[in-house]
Design a protein around this nucleic acid. Structure first.
Lengths: 193, 193
DNA sequence: GTCGGATGTAAGCGCTTGCTTACAATCCGG
DNA sequence: CCGGATTGTAAGCAAGCGCTTACATCCGAC
């Protein structure tokens, strides 16, 4: 992870990127509190003082590391629930690069990590989910779907609870989809489809 | 919380109980890691050295404090989902005595706290939930229900996400109940009812 | 009464944490 | 080729952590 290219000896941008990548990995693997700045610097192959020179604090590094892509832009709303479930039930390895969700689940509920859920997942995903139903309380229903995602990620990938962790991904996702359909149903046809 | 009765000056059993109560409160309020032994002793009005004399370690105290009642014994299976949801959406104050669930949600995912979910919630609640359906994968469906409980508790009470946190409890619980019904349905009538 | 064990207290040990400081090594424009 | 800014390093500080130790204090049996 993030070994330096030996051609360039001193490269601030490269070490900064290495620190950012190492931080992203460790935060998603262990959460905020169980990740130390010494761990991050070690994995990045850098001195920990540079971490503070480039990012100021562990908090600021966390925010920069977690400000990442989401898959909202590339997914049509109707498939969002299925796509997120597929991601949740992916082969294994939620350790890897993506999904700040796991950084939050593996952290205690700090304001810092809580805001990731509230703002990112909450506002963005919630809005799309709410658009899938014409119920009056669409936003509450959307929150319930997000809550289920969180709970499944927590129980399955963080806690490793059986039989859920070992269950057939497609079949399990289908169960969730069917139940979610009772939440996100439409009473009228959409105007253009 | 746990103020001593001034009549009795020295009472090992009383201070031990006070420590246990303070530990239960603080662990559910803040989780394992964010609760210090000094905090516990201070809230119990006791010296922290006594904590180690009576319980040996912070870990052992956590286990004793979390080994608590559950509401399984007093609830008929058919009402379990509704009762747990009612508890989840209770007025407020999940800080109080009960529900080690919040100790887990507020902790990082340590093996210590993870086992509470896997063993307590998992085995006990899972078994009852699975008995509510005659589907082949009843145990997976039960895990999905538990996952939803966890997610709702996390999003609503720990993270305080709106609009879920402020939504009407009864109406929201009804939404969940209806969706859960598609998971825990019976295809045949129970033999005696 | 007194003596010994039970109970409570103060102090601190060793370690880890996030973060800072003082300094060495390196690069690059002139 | 040299001097100043940039990049990297080692060491350590202050605070907080779980836990231990040495010691005062109380109480009940005899």
């Amino acid at each position: 992870m993030a070994e330096e290219t030996p051609g360039r000896r001193r490269d601030a941008a490269a070490t900064k990127a290495a620190l950012l990548a190492a931080a992203r990995e460790l935060f998603t693997e262990r959460g905020f509190e169980r990740t130390t700045v010494r761990d991050i610097a070690a994995r990045a192959g850098a001195n920990q003082a540079l971490l503070f020179r480039y990012f100021g604090s562990k908090d600021a590094l966390f925010q920069q590391a977690m400000a990442s892509k989401n898959l909202l832009a590339e997914t049509p709303p109707e498939q969002l629930v299925a796509v997120v479930l597929a991601r949740l039930f992916a082969p294994d390895a939620p350790t890897a690069e993506d999904n700040p969700l796991y950084a939050v689940l593996r952290s205690a509920a700090h304001e810092r990590t809580a805001s990731v859920v509230r703002d990112d997942l909450g506002e963005q995903y919630g809005q799309v989910l709410a658009s899938l139903t014409d119920a009056e309380d669409a936003d509450v229903r959307a929150d319930l779907v997000i809550a289920w995602w969180l709970g499944i990620g927590l129980l399955r990938s963080v806690l490793g609870k059986e039989p859920l962790a070992g269950a057939d991904p497609a079949a399990t996702a289908a169960l969730v989809l069917r139940a979610v359909a009772t939440l996100l149903e439409r009473t009228e046809q959409p105007p253009d489809a």
